[in-house]
Simulated assay, not measured.
Amino acid sequence: MTIDDAILTKGVKALDGVAENEGGDVAVIRVTGAWVGLLSDWLDREGIEARSLRAALARWASEENVPVPVWRQMLVEARALVPNRVAPELAIGSGVSPGHVGVLGYLVLAADTLGEAMLAYQRYETLFYGTRLAEVELLGREAEIRWPPAEQELGQQADGVAIAALVTFLRRQLDESPPPSGISFMGSVSDAAAETYEAFFDCPIRWQDSHVRVRFPVEYLAIPMPRRDPALRAVLDRQAQALLRALPASSAVERQLQQVLLRLLAEGEPTLVRAADAMHMSARTLQRKLGSHGLSWQQWLDRSREQLARQYLDDVSLSLTDVALLLGFSEQSAFTRAFRRWTGCSPGRVRRAGAGALRPDSP
């Protein structure tokens, strides 16, 4: 079975639906081109040639949006290459690296604790799936992150890849990483595959649930994230440099404010009151400290967002909607208006010209 024109047509129509409903409530999902690299890397590790499948993977690797039907079909083809292998989707997912999930992976790893990482994933999931699906909830002594049914289901193989990647991602970052307390899937597998799943995740697995779920004991949420990945450190360094340009000659207090700002942007609520609360001071005191630099809160916020925007616009893997979300805007149009106010240019024009070339738009 191959990825035929019918599959591609269905996938393109699904993505058209995303574009028409951008900012709405329709949960039509996709994956990114970087994600299909999981499958290419698995083929390399297994020493499998698979010319037809590799051609399809190469076709989609550079795309921002990979339709769900295309991703499902590629997994079907991969499974057919190893007919005697039990649950190969787990091996595929276990090859995950930050590069496979792009900036989402770096933003998750940049969190201070496992609990903050879960919330960062929820906030930025739209960078990966094109819509926000994950729900995070405390349930007694457990914390749960779950994904409800969507208009286009990924299917059990794709869900298996995704959760294997998520758990592997955390295992590689944490010393003596504790296993989840439980995982649920909406689909089902053979008895042999079910045993493989339990051995891989080292926890009980529930099948045919209403949601895909991953649960951790609540005390795990305080586990610090060590930030080992060198590419992550590069991202954080660029963010720090951008914020230093917004407020040069900064003191320890201003550097603390810069870190607070990144968290507030991640939460989508960068207000003076929230920043002051996070720094354990009054809003008036924080405003006075900014005033010593000749800046109001709004002026400093705009300057910081502008510097971060220039950095993000240099990364062509980020769409303008992605950049807007990273800067704490709820929609791309609000970011575009703000960026034009800061620079006199539209972000699209700056990206086309190169983020260093800031010239006012022509009338």
Rank of each mutant, 00 (worst) to 15 (best):
Q239A: 01
A338W: 01
M225W: 14
G344N: 04
V253M: 14
G115V: 05
T168C: 02
A27K: 09
D41R: 13
R213Y: 00
G356Y: 01
W342R: 06
T336Q: 13
V136N: 08
V253L: 15
R310N: 04
T126Y: 07
R274E: 06
W60T: 06
K13R: 15
R263A: 10
R172N: 13
S94R: 12
R288L: 08
L243C: 12
S190K: 12
E151A: 08
L286V: 02
A56C: 14
S177F: 05
N84T: 11
E219W: 12
P363W: 01
D25L: 14
V316F: 09
R263V: 05
I163H: 02
V31E: 06
Y312Q: 12
G47A: 09
L75P: 02
L90N: 03
A193D: 04
G291P: 11
Q173M: 14
Q208H: 03
A275P: 04
I183R: 04
E49T: 15
R171T: 03
G95P: 06
V18S: 11
A120H: 10
A14S: 14
G105S: 07
V260S: 10
A120C: 04
G268Q: 08
W207P: 02
A324T: 08
V161S: 03
S317H: 08
L325T: 04
S330D: 00
E267I: 04
F200Q: 07
E151L: 13
T2S: 13
W297D: 00
G356D: 10
R352W: 09
G187S: 00
D159F: 05
L139Y: 12
L318M: 06
S210R: 11
A266Y: 01
L358H: 04
S333M: 05
A193T: 03
Q332G: 01
E306G: 10
L8H: 13
E267C: 02
P360T: 01
G268V: 07
V103L: 15
L57W: 07
P98Q: 11
D315M: 06
A231W: 02
G356W: 01
Q307T: 02
Q239F: 05
V108K: 01
G187I: 04
D229I: 06
G344Q: 11
A78N: 01
S177V: 02
A27G: 11
T196D: 05
Q311H: 12
S292G: 15
R30T: 13
S62K: 11
A334V: 01
Y312A: 10
